[in-house]
Computed example of a mutant assay.
Amino acid sequence: MKHVPDHENEHFDVRAHHDSGQNRITPLLRFPDEVALHIVEGLTGLVRHAHRAEEARPTPPGQLKRAQVFEEGDVYMVEPPFPGYFADRYLMDFYDVRERDICSRMHLHTGLRFVRMMTGPGTTIRVSSLSPLIVRPSPGWTADPLAEFTDELPDMPPEDARERYNAVVPPNSWVDMQIPRGVSHQFNAVGPNAVIDSVHPEESIETLREGMAGYKMMAQTIFLAEERSAAETCLGTKP
């Protein structure tokens, strides 16, 4: 639970956090360059169109703003929840960490998540957690296994060092991820062609339980660092 439900930048002390479970990753398919690019550009184009429409015609106060901004990229809530269906779905157009020279932070949520990551040519997504990642086998994945490695969580004093577990989604890929509630995770895209299709089955329930003043897609995000780190701390894609 967040200390202040409406705080969009709330962070907890990572030294006191221990994951209660593990994230599971399922690689599904690799595509030819042109197919992957067509898929990613179509989905990110939808997000960009929504943000242009929001700039031209801002959402009136008190109504759900579906074009929002996350730490990892611009987002659009494709399917908002409604009474009797307490889930939402959004698309996120990833930032290239090299363009801003910053990485997104490790974070967690009070509700579970399902995330579908898709990459195009020349683009990878580095997925990280404070607990070991479980990479499941898939009959449709005929490429090499995902690159996995460990490093240290950046910006920690030596006496409080925390191990970080990483897996890399390669270019032109479709990879799914299941994120249990309260389990740390971090996404950083290296390259211009990356998108997430994410479903939050518990978002509305958690929002109501926390007594928020308004519905925000970042409502349940709890960061495990106060500041973002330099891009060099999340660019690596191999041990």
Rank of each mutant, 00 (worst) to 15 (best):
L112I: 08
I102E: 14
M117I: 14
Y95E: 07
D74H: 12
A167I: 09
R100A: 06
G120C: 04
P80I: 05
V97D: 05
G84T: 07
L91P: 07
M177K: 04
V78H: 05
P154Q: 03
D176N: 12
Y95N: 14
F82H: 15
P137E: 01
A147Q: 15
P139V: 02
Y90R: 02
Q178A: 10
D96Y: 06
D176V: 09
F70N: 12
V199Q: 08
P83S: 10
H107V: 01
W174T: 04
L133K: 01
H185I: 01
E163G: 07
T119H: 00
P158S: 09
G111K: 06
F187G: 05
P137T: 02
T123W: 07
R164T: 08
F149T: 01
S173N: 03
L108E: 04
S138L: 01
R181C: 09
D151W: 00
F187S: 02
V183C: 04
A194T: 01
P145G: 06
N188M: 05
S138N: 07
P192G: 05
L91H: 03
D176C: 11
S138Q: 06
G120N: 06
T124I: 11
I102V: 15
D101H: 09
P157N: 09
L133F: 00
D176T: 15
R98M: 10
P158K: 10
V199S: 11
A189W: 05
R100Y: 08
L133G: 00
M117F: 13
R162F: 00
G111T: 11
V115Q: 04
S138E: 00
M77Q: 09
A143N: 07
M106T: 15
Y165W: 08
D96K: 04
M177G: 00
S173R: 00
F70W: 12
F149K: 06
T142K: 15
V78R: 08
P80H: 08
Y85P: 06
P171A: 07
F70E: 12
V175S: 05
P81A: 12
R105L: 00
N166L: 03
S104R: 05
